[in-house]
Design a protein around this nucleic acid. Structure first.
Lengths: 244, 244
DNA sequence: CCAAAAGTGTTAGACGTACACCCATGG
DNA sequence: CCATGGGTGTACGTCTAACACTTTTGG
């Protein structure tokens, strides 16, 4: 791997996570300081992205970026849209930011958007030099570059995938309860479901498998735990597309 | 417009058309001749694409390419996927083709795929220097570069759009019969529908509007003509997603 | 024994699917 | 009058949506 990057091509990854009852997204703080490093000019948030390398294809670049940030590989990672407006890096803050690098980014950069799903509890974020945190998707505003737009489009695709591919199960921990699953669907789709009807639907999804195990130490009736069988899902996905 | 193109970024347009009962795609002949121009080294087919210009965004590049080829603007034109494998231009024929241009394309080119829909009868193809024709999507094989793969992915998106956005109506002429519409859906989705059930569905789509007009000069009972009201479609699309 | 979330069935209406015959026209 | 595609209704089964109470645990 040469690590010589292509100046006008990047990949941005929208890493979604789910935690208790909120849909989260993993973001990096971008802080511009004065040259003496004493004062902050501005500070905002950006998606995790980087230029692609000359000898690396798009999917690998996305996988590398996610791996570097979370330490995880083998995530669901899917390309959803490519952004190439002429003005995508033209906000005043973005220009200041680029000046820091001697203006090497002055031309238009086309970025390929990928999204990734994982239970937010799975991640040990190990970054010394950058502040990386989970943010609730509802609370993020005024991100760097055109990243609000990219997040918006990623959300749209996530909602679609959740309804057509049942892929949202990637956002849950390995063992989960049906209530957690329902809260995930409600958080992502922004609706609410009837508990009984939701469970009837799930009962038809034979890739959601009950375990011989229940919750422990909860101050109420312990719930049945389930797992997602990727295997059964792959074998039966064609017979029937599942919707909630 | 500077017309200085970006060497590692292109747009490829998959232009779908529908004609009687076949789904077609507009392709360009790519013929490599020996330097004395007397003999043909090889000849195959490619999608219509070109590099983007430095001062042009992706959507505009796609619109320009379609306009140059068909003379039409204001088409449905939608980005569907971006292709950036390292080996996408590595087939022996593709290498020979590039050598013709003194190898300027020797690095990896990332291409953004767009698809476009129109009734194939609407197009007057006006190209002196290139052979451009409609081909049935079922009959095309061994296209240039990775264009088979791009067409495959475009087809997938077309099928999806047809079922979820009723956008396939763009493929029909301004006035059409319900049988034509049914043949379109059958050709694109590769299935067949019961005539009565299909018509019941269409009856629920209030953006498919009956005209005060019938077919003329057909050797059978003349069919009611319909039009697609983009206006009604836009106003009602949120209330209910339509599927066939 | 209280609070908290888990778990469970029925009914009415909408929708999907299967199926066969008569109609209007041009030649 | 024949060939061709246009046009129509019904019945059955499945899916959706609305709705309320009992259970099990920890504190």
């Amino acid at each position: 791997m040469s690590h010589k990057w292509v100046p006008n091509l990047s990949v941005d990854c929208v890493i979604f996570g789910f935690d208790a009852d909120q849909l989260k997204v993993l973001l990096v703080e971008r802080t511009l300081r004065t040259t003496d490093k004493k004062n902050i000019v501005f500070s905002d948030l950006s998606l995790t992205g980087y230029h692609i390398y000359e000898d690396e294809d798009l999917d690998s670049a996305a996988a590398r970026i996610v791996k570097d940030l979370t330490g995880l590989d083998k995530l669901v990672l899917e390309q959803f849209y490519t952004f190439g407006s002429l003005d995508r890096l033209e906000h005043p803050n973005d220009k200041l930011w680029h000046e820091q690098f001697g203006d090497v980014f002055s031309h238009r950069v086309v970025t390929v958007g990928y999204f990734s799903l994982l239970p937010s509890t799975k991640v040990k974020i190990a970054q010394k030099d950058r502040v990386v945190r989970w943010y609730s998707v509802n609370e993020v505003q005024n991100m760097a570059f055109d990243h609000n737009q990219i997040l918006e489009k990623a959300l749209f695709h996530l909602r679609y995938k959740l309804q057509h591919d049942a892929i949202g199960l990637e956002l849950l921990p390995d063992k989960f309860t049906l209530s957690q699953m329902q809260r995930l669907y409600e958080a992502v789709l922004g609706t609410s479901f009837d508990k009984r009807n939701f469970r009837k639907k799930v009962a038809q999804m034979n890739f959601v498998v009950p375990l011989k195990e229940k919750q422990h130490g909860v101050p109420h009736k312990p719930a049945q735990l389930y797992m997602f069988s990727r295997d059964i899902f792959m074998r039966t996905r064609k017979e029937r597309p599942y919707f909630i």
